[in-house]
Simulated assay, not measured.
Amino acid sequence: MPESRSLTSRRGLLFGTAAVSAGAFLTACTSNEPADSGEKTGADTRPAADDKPGKAVTIGYAGPQADHGWLNAVNENAKSRAEKYEDVTLEVTEGSNDTAAQIGQIETLINKKVDVLVILPADGKALTQVGLKAMRAGIPVVNLDRIFNSPQAYRCYIGGDNYGMGLNAGHYIGEKLKDKENAKVVELAGLDNLELTKQRTAGFDAALKNYPNIKKVARQAADFTVESGQAKMAQLLQAQSGFDALWNHDDDQGVGALRAIEQAGRDDFLMVGGAGALSAMQAIEADDGVLKATVLYPPTMAASAIDLARALGQGKGIGGLAEFEIPSSLTLYSAVVDKDNVDQYMPTGFK
């Protein structure tokens, strides 16, 4: 999963209920008459902001290499959203996780004089200078998810809430185990060298402090792949003969984790995933295994980034706000999806 930042002020927690996200709020981004949307699983399914054609806008999109389910969903959300607007032309670069290659691709878009740039950087710190270059060239930048080092490198930031993911996962588990004496939980984290992993763990630990009967007895870091999830989960299961709940940071590695759990014949705990993969939501709906919930990290943020870029290009604000300008920062809410609301979120599940 991509790096992001956390904000210290956030909305009240939702324990497995739906939240109004920044993405939903952006359906009014350029005011009137939302368009009907299709039922395309894994891509943005919300109505487009203002279907009425306005000033023509060329948006340059520099996203990641789609080597992970969530990253692929991000790219698809951006493309499908742009297709809903007659007045938007999307210039898409070949996705890259190589910083030098991505910098070159963005410089090409700058030289083409696109109206607005949407950039999900392979490395926010490494690409800060090219963001600054675009802004100085008069091209507003929508910085998607992995944040640049300087606010001068973007006009608007939109991303997920990693701390909030951990916080809401911890509270969901806490509420399920609050009446169990000496409850034990384990954590299957992502890559420990990523700031986002540290934020998710910090949020989880903060939530558990509200439940003195619960103790985290083990933590294992994986690397967001099915193979790593299976291997690291097998190690956790071997080391821990008994526990009550597992929080897994990422649904892609969760596929492997579930394989290891099935191979070990374990069903004595509940599992909470992260991100919102279609496979996770289907397992939650079936309710015949350990996976009971997943905490969203919505790939629809890319669709909302296109909304923001279009609004910037047309000089519009967001409907419902008094201000004439779009905000400088939007952090999406990490809603918990369980069997009670999975039907609502199923269309957003990514493969």
Rank of each mutant, 00 (worst) to 15 (best):
E3D: 15
S6T: 07
R10P: 01
R11H: 10
G12E: 12
G12D: 07
L14D: 13
A19L: 05
A22E: 04
F25I: 13
T27A: 00
S31D: 10
N32C: 11
E33R: 12
S37M: 05
S37E: 08
G38S: 12
T41M: 13
T41P: 00
T41K: 15
G42I: 05
D44Q: 03
D44P: 09
T45P: 00
R46G: 05
K55I: 11
T58S: 11
P64I: 13
D67C: 03
D67T: 07
G69Y: 02
N72S: 13
A73T: 00
A73I: 03
N75K: 08
A82W: 05
Y85W: 01
T89C: 03
V92D: 01
E94Y: 05
S96R: 01
Q102G: 08
Q102H: 10
I110Q: 07
L117D: 02
L117I: 12
P121I: 01
A126E: 06
L127H: 01
T128K: 10
G131I: 02
K133I: 06
M135T: 13
R136A: 15
S150G: 02
S150Y: 10
P151L: 04
Q152D: 15
Q152A: 15
A153G: 11
M165S: 09
N168W: 10
H171P: 01
I173N: 02
K176P: 00
L177G: 02
K180G: 01
E181S: 10
E181C: 00
E181W: 13
K184Y: 04
V186C: 11
E187C: 14
E187I: 14
L188I: 07
L188Q: 03
L188D: 07
G190S: 12
K198R: 08
G203T: 09
F204R: 00
P212Y: 12
I214R: 13
E227D: 15
S228E: 03
G229L: 08
L236T: 07
S241I: 00
S241L: 06
G242A: 14
D244M: 03
W247D: 08
Q253S: 13
G254S: 02
G254T: 03
G256F: 08
Q263S: 15
Q263P: 00
G265E: 06
G265R: 11
G265M: 04
G265C: 08
L270Y: 14
L270H: 02
A275F: 11
Q282R: 15
A283E: 14
E285K: 15
D287G: 06
D288I: 01
D288H: 02
K292S: 07
L296V: 03
S304K: 09
D307W: 11
A309F: 13
G315P: 08
G317A: 06
I318N: 02
I318L: 05
G320T: 06
I326M: 04
V336I: 12
Q344N: 10
M346E: 02
P347Y: 02
F350T: 03
